[in-house]
Amino acid sequence: MLGFTEMTRFSLWTRFAAAALILFVALIVGSNVFSPHVQTNRERAQSIDATIKCPSCQDLSVAQASSPSSIAVRAQVLRDVNKGMSNSEVLAQLESQYGNAILLTPPPGGLSAILWIVPVLIVVLSAAILISVVTKRRRSARPRGQALVDHE
């Protein structure tokens, strides 16, 4: 038979487990895992729009811009999505018209890669030269210091 303390401990654990279970179920229900939201064509087109650069503006996606060129691109994306094209097919079609400059984050490579790599190389090279010069000076300065100590 269980003692009073053991009974209390058992019921405490039961309460904790029950609370955890309720929380778990609530989270599962709240996250819509069992009834996932099906994206409509318009929503999918909008998510693609957010990754495409407005052809005639600076640093804006076609989802944000209101220029005629952005409106034309948005219309094309929606048309292609309605045709059943995948996201990558829609983007490939636009790249075949504008080149990869139409993407807000173009794939790394080419001139853009050089623009990223060169400054990093310059910083690394400068740091290496600086460290090497400082180390060399310290090394050459040390024997003179020791000589002074010896004199004393």
Binding site: P55, S56, P68, S69, I71, A72, A75, Q97, Y98, A101
Partner: peptide, 13 residues
């Protein structure tokens, strides 16, 4: 008027 021709030709400026 809708910018569709410019879009097909990939014109940005």
């Amino acid at each position: 008027p809708q910018g569709n021709t410019a879009n097909r030709w990939g014109v940005s400026s």
